[in-house]
Amino acid sequence: MTDLLGTLIVDSIAPRWKHYAIGSVAVFWLGGAALLLLGWPELAHLGDCSGSAAALCRSEPPGGWRSWVVPATLIVVVIGTASLLHAAAQPLLAYCSGDDWPDLAAVRAWERRRRSAHARRRARLTSMWVERDEAEWGWEARTGSYARWRRYPTGERRAGEARVATTRPGNALAAARQRVYDIFGLDLGICWGPMLAAMPELGRTRVAEGATVVQLRVQQHGLALLTPAWVIVALAAPWPWRTRLAVAAALLVVAVVAIVATRLRMCTAIEGYADLVEDAVLVHRGALYAAAGVGLPGDSELERRAAARLTDWLTATNPAPVAFAWPE
């Protein structure tokens, strides 16, 4: 289900070090450092020249190691955390999309409940914008319900993973994949890589930018999932127990808000990326047909046949020969 994103999540230095990704990591560690200093004020005096460190401090030249070791450590921690989040973005995205979950009885039961809940919501949205006439249900409400309904696969045709998924991101990607199949006959699980290779540079750049936004939103959500760790730090601080509970409760509220907010932003980014993929197929699918040599179809029915031939050829499931029409 996340193969569309996996093809486009870029691994270059520019998308990795976007300013707001670094900013999120810096805020996370600066807030944690402030909490540590409030709980253990003696940490602020680790660099003092006293006790066993006195001889080392006296031998230190002016502007020596103490002037740069703390900033260097902070930089290494921030960049290291951002690198870990970058590496964890794709597995976290697969998990949030409902892929690669452990094959356990409890997990399967939870998946069934989630699918059932999403199926009920899809049926309710269908009745809101399809079965009620405009006089009974206002145009604005019908349009809003349609916008939410189109994030679900309809189940009318099965192209890859057309059934209702367990999560909101998974449903958005499955719905986009199914709509492309229903309209054009292209299975994006097979044809998206070749289409991306044949796409003009401008279109490929737009899709890559959308995928980069998704990656950064996933990284921010992963960082938000780490914020409850500061609750444990607050409970371990040497404060009166009422102070510890108050600070821990406040941090827990902040953590919950951060997790919910970043997840909503991640879901919105994935839905926007799914729309971007559909637009790219609408505009650039001719480049795929031309590059693959199957000829440009003249109408929608011929296009579905051409898409079926192309899919069979790419998957090596059709033993019949394919006539090519290479562009001159």
Score class of each variant (00 low, 15 high):
W65L: 14
D100I: 05
I79G: 14
V69D: 00
I79H: 12
L84P: 02
E60C: 00
A89E: 05
T81A: 15
T73R: 09
W68N: 10
G80K: 04
W68P: 05
V78F: 15
D103L: 15
L84A: 13
C96D: 03
L104C: 08
S83L: 12
G98D: 04
G64L: 07
S83E: 05
R108Y: 08
R66C: 11
P71K: 13
P61V: 04
V69P: 01
C96L: 13
W65A: 15
V69Y: 04
A87V: 08
H86K: 06
L92V: 06
A89C: 13
A82I: 04
A88W: 00
A94R: 06
P91G: 03
A109K: 12
Q90G: 00
V78C: 09
C96N: 09
V107R: 15
A72M: 03
A109N: 11
A89V: 07
P102I: 01
S83F: 11
L104N: 11
W101M: 11
D99S: 15
V77H: 08
I79T: 13
Y95E: 08
G63W: 09
V77T: 15
H86P: 06
T73N: 04
V77K: 14
D100N: 10
L84W: 05
G98F: 13
A109S: 12
Y95A: 02
H86L: 11
L104E: 13
Q90H: 11
V107A: 13
W101C: 03
V70M: 04
V107S: 09
S83C: 09
V69K: 02
T81L: 15
P62K: 13
G98T: 05
T81C: 14
A94T: 06
A106Y: 07
L74M: 08
A106M: 07
Q90E: 01
H86D: 15
W68S: 08
S97F: 03
L104I: 08
A72I: 00
L104P: 06
W101A: 06
H86I: 08
A72C: 00
S67V: 07
D100T: 07
L93H: 02
S97K: 05
P61G: 07
P61W: 00
V70T: 12
L85D: 07
C96M: 10
I75R: 00
S83P: 01
R66K: 10
L92H: 00
A89L: 04
H86Q: 10
A106P: 04
